[in-house]
Amino acid sequence: ASRLDMLSTLQLVANFFPEALNLPFKDEGEVSMKLTDWSDANSIEIENAHDALADCVQMLELAKLIQKTAMPVWQASIKGATKNGNLEILQSEPFAMIGEVVRRKKFTYPVTFCGQNPKMNNEVAVADLYFDPDLLDDLTDSELLEQIGNSGTAIRKVRINKSMPVMSADSIPDIEKYLDIPHEQLVERARKIKENIKLQTRVSELLGANQINYPPPKYLEQTVYQGFPSDADDLWMERFHSLPWEERAKVLDGFEDSRYKELAERLVCAHNPESVSREIFEKYQNFINQRLYDKGPWPSLEKTLDKTRSMLIEATGEKKDILEKLEKSLSSKSEFS
């Protein structure tokens, strides 16, 4: 799968190809990253700004301009739309350049690959070449770990499973204009990092050892990231949704994954409760009561009722009618709490 984020592409243009497009400058040379501002600056006429279709048209027209006037940025963006592509860019010769726009201010960093989390391959470490790599070898593990962060440290963590504003330094014309120290010095520093297998191994091990171990999920909804459905469950879902509600209870036991079976039970109980067994319906009632009256990572009945009453104070017309009906319904439920 691939993904291209136009925001990352525009950040590369703003930092390394500022003359390729008209940049939407704000006060004191700050660069806006609003899509509409980029369109206005480059005479892209649209209707219904912020509409989803209008956003697509703006991105398409901007993409055409970038292909025409800043092809290296477009090529880097296409490559960076995949995990392997991002990894190739970060490992490119002689080094890579990250170009960000944060709070309308431009920032550039020369970097090179220096490790990968063995437990989560999407997390990669890159060395900021403005830091002297010779100093890293003398650090203890705890000191080296302190130098691994998201920004402002000698080693930076990035995610290769999403677009990022990065491209090979060789693809940037007049690269020296964007560097704080000589190009030759950065090439030498990048070479040292790439040849230092021991450092890369240490960084990779520290990334894995420092992995956050989250507690097991307590509620069904929190398990959605524990894995995708099997091919068999995918097919069974199609069968489940193709049946009328009164027939769906008959196929509940066909799910391999207990998560999908329980979600299917809830759906049937909500739409056709008379078709399920007494045991399943009691389980569903317990679930509803828990969500209404127990404390958890969801809005409680009490807080929802308080919020509804506060909104009623200034409500008028149809909105007031809806809130009054909601307040009445919630109040009737709260009487049983």
Score class of each variant (00 low, 15 high):
91 Q>L: 01
123 E>Q: 14
139 L>K: 11
161 N>M: 05
168 S>R: 09
101 V>D: 05
76 A>F: 06
176 E>G: 01
174 D>R: 07
155 I>N: 12
175 I>L: 15
89 I>M: 04
118 P>E: 14
75 Q>R: 14
112 T>L: 07
79 K>A: 05
131 F>V: 05
75 Q>S: 07
146 E>D: 13
116 Q>C: 15
154 A>S: 13
164 M>I: 11
150 N>K: 05
112 T>R: 06
107 F>D: 14
98 I>F: 11
157 K>L: 11
126 V>F: 08
112 T>A: 05
169 A>W: 03
144 L>T: 04
170 D>Y: 07
137 D>G: 13
172 I>N: 12
95 F>H: 09
160 I>F: 03
168 S>I: 02
76 A>E: 03
168 S>H: 04
107 F>H: 15
160 I>R: 00
146 E>Y: 00
108 T>Q: 08
122 N>T: 15
156 R>D: 03
153 T>L: 05
98 I>R: 08
161 N>S: 10
143 E>R: 01
146 E>M: 02
153 T>P: 00
151 S>C: 02
149 G>Y: 07
133 P>Q: 11
176 E>L: 00
102 V>Y: 13
142 S>C: 00
132 D>P: 12
125 A>H: 08
116 Q>I: 13
81 A>V: 12
99 G>F: 13
115 G>H: 08
140 T>Q: 02
108 T>R: 11
93 E>P: 00
162 K>N: 10
86 N>S: 01
119 K>H: 10
107 F>S: 15
95 F>N: 06
165 P>C: 09
124 V>Y: 05
107 F>I: 14
141 D>Q: 06
120 M>K: 15
98 I>P: 00
72 P>V: 06
111 V>D: 12
132 D>R: 06
82 T>M: 02
139 L>E: 07
111 V>A: 12
84 N>A: 09
109 Y>D: 02
120 M>P: 01
124 V>H: 03
103 R>W: 09
